[in-house]
Amino acid sequence: MTPNADNSVRTYVGPPINTEDAKNTYEMYHLKGDKSKQGVKSFELIVQLTYFGQMRYYESATLNSAPSTAFKVVSRDAGICEARGCIFGELLSISLSDAFLKDNAKKGFQLSISSKAGAKSDLYIPPQYIQGYLKAVDGITY
């Protein structure tokens, strides 16, 4: 938890979850949220995907099998090239509501991110992660 300079907003950053899929995509993701002094909350899931080959251009996401309209690409980077190919990274953000997190605190949720190149990354945010995160934000066990 980090307060801003005037103490009107606190930012809560959850620890990263690190996985690698069958296509050697390194997946690192975490929850991040802001809570104002008045109690107004906004959340997002930050996803960093790193892989070799060609740029994939991730462009859409589904949350629990429903299309997400709150998906955005924060950045795309091309890194060094070596024998396996060039390394690429894409930083993505999916906005989540307080109600969505609370509704999924007992079962977790599935996120699927698809690219123009046909690649798909499936991420799972477990209930224990969401419960611990919300406890830090709200001080309540869900």
Rank of each mutant, 00 (worst) to 15 (best):
F43S: 05
Q54V: 13
T25G: 05
D6C: 07
R76D: 07
Q48C: 06
Y129S: 00
K116S: 05
K102Y: 05
G139Y: 04
P16N: 11
P126A: 01
G79V: 03
T62N: 11
K106E: 04
D34H: 06
T19F: 05
T50C: 09
R84K: 11
G139L: 05
P15R: 09
Y26W: 05
D98H: 12
D21A: 02
T69K: 14
K102D: 01
S60C: 05
I17Q: 12
Y26R: 13
I130F: 01
S121R: 06
F100P: 08
Q131A: 10
Y51W: 11
P67N: 13
S121H: 02
A117W: 04
I46N: 13
V47E: 10
D98Y: 06
F100E: 11
S93G: 10
V13A: 06
I87N: 11
G53V: 09
K116L: 08
L45Y: 09
H30Q: 11
L31S: 04
Y58D: 04
T25I: 10
E20Q: 15
I113Q: 01
K116R: 12
I113K: 00
A99L: 11
Q128Y: 01
K72R: 14
I46A: 10
A78F: 00
V13E: 11
Y51N: 08
N24Q: 11
V9Y: 10
L111G: 02
R76Q: 15
A105G: 02
Q128H: 02
G79E: 03
S68N: 13
D6E: 12
T19Q: 15
Y57N: 14
G118T: 13
A78T: 14
T69R: 12
K72G: 13
I125Q: 09
V74Q: 10
E27M: 15
S42D: 08
Y29R: 00
S60G: 08
D103N: 15
R76N: 10
P3S: 13
